[in-house]
Design a protein around this nucleic acid. Structure first.
Lengths: 212, 212
DNA sequence: ACGTATCCGTGATAAATGTCACAGCCAAAA
DNA sequence: TTTTGGCTGTGACATTTATCACGGATACGT
């Protein structure tokens, strides 16, 4: 498995100390995953912390009856705040992480995190920034499910998905959307049909085209 | 305004460096607040970071139509993760913080946070632990609103409130509960009546008694 | 003790979402 | 081509929660 020094520089430009870059390149393993691959699961041990070099991951929450809910997407240059907390505390995962697209991830042994905080100021800043953005994302998620109706949530979902995939054509099924929004296929189908009637999207089998 | 060295030692025993304790005692201002006082509000600047020495604070989220939702409680020995992120980034608050009980808070100038992270390992651990617990709390909140019905959420609310107030007698109104759960008085009244019929609580004007 | 605010209980009804049932359609495999 | 399985559309109905309306109860100030 080859390490890719340039990838870190390109996507994590805020990490500046040469010693830090060197440690990441020496100790991190590059892992390539494909769309749909599971990177982490509820209850799993977290012994690596993932830096996302390319692609998109999605972070999901589940309950015991395996109802699901998408929390947020991770893009190149980002990492998972949950992994941070878990790494530091050697705890188990409270979330599931799935590759939304083919992705490349640098896996860092979790025991390094702590010492780097003191050793490399830019690492500390990166960690802090990660917490801040993930906190905001979680609050957005809470806003959606607490204060919005399903039609609004669906529109936001389509926009977000279109944004991270960088495409107006979404290749998915009503069933999958329903799962990620913790709803049901019939409800999503009907709301999508409404949106089509309003001229905002076009529907096809396994695909949704956003118009604008 | 007097500083209270012992209060820090008692409630924040994980903060161990003498230099850190001294800085907190020298630079922190002790503020006393009463039940219902607003400590922070949505959109407000955060220039102090609050360490809760005694009492209970509640952290709320609001939307534009001033619908509200309780996120979690803070107890003695804890601090607000949102304040942490805001302090570090000099950002505005995304939440509202209200005193649930009379409380004493040590306010620390936010510009110190960053340097302490490197200077005092126990401060860094404290900050990390804070993030971890708050993250978990937010996930719990998400679980509740995403996966549970109002009757379950209400029971959990009553238990949580009883726990932080350390009393089986809750002095509040149906209206206030409805606001913190982002519901309506009628719904809460009916559900409370159900619980009373099941023998789980007793209702009175401005009070609810938990039986077990 | 009286008047008044607020709080509480509850029926009737509406809106949002979930569930069930089933039919048609499309795409890939045989 | 035919079959098969998954995807989509939609009516009918159930459940959960919100809204409206209003009357009665309780505490508090004067």
């Amino acid at each position: 498995m080859m390490s890719t020094p340039s990838a870190i520089n390109e996507n994590f430009s805020e990490l500046v100390e040469p010693g830090l870059i060197k440690e990441i390149n020496d100790l991190g393993k590059v892992v390539k995953v494909h769309t749909g691959d599971k990177i982490m699961d509820y209850g799993g041990e977290i012994i690596y912390m993932p830096l996302l070099v390319s692609g998109v991951l999605k972070v999901l929450r589940m309950d015991r009856d395996s109802n699901e809910l998408i929390l947020y997407y991770l893009q190149a240059g980002e990492t998972c705040a949950m992994s941070l907390t878990c790494c530091m505390a050697h705890e188990k995962s409270e979330i599931r992480v799935i590759a939304e697209e083919d992705s490349a991830i640098v896996m860092l042994p979790s025991e390094l995190m702590d010492s780097w905080m003191q050793k490399y100021p830019s690492w500390k800043s990166f960690v802090m920034k990660t917490y801040q953005t993930r906190f905001s994302e979680l609050l957005n998620t809470i806003d959606s499910i607490a204060f919005k109706r399903m039609d609004e949530r669906l529109v936001q979902y389509l926009i977000d998905k279109s944004t991270v995939n960088n495409s107006h054509l979404l290749e998915t099924t009503h069933q999958k959307i329903a799962e990620e929004l913790n709803s049901t296929r019939e409800v999503i189908s009907r709301l999508l049909k409404q949106l089509e009637n309003q001229g905002k999207i076009e529907l096809g089998r396994n695909k949704i085209t956003l118009k604008l």
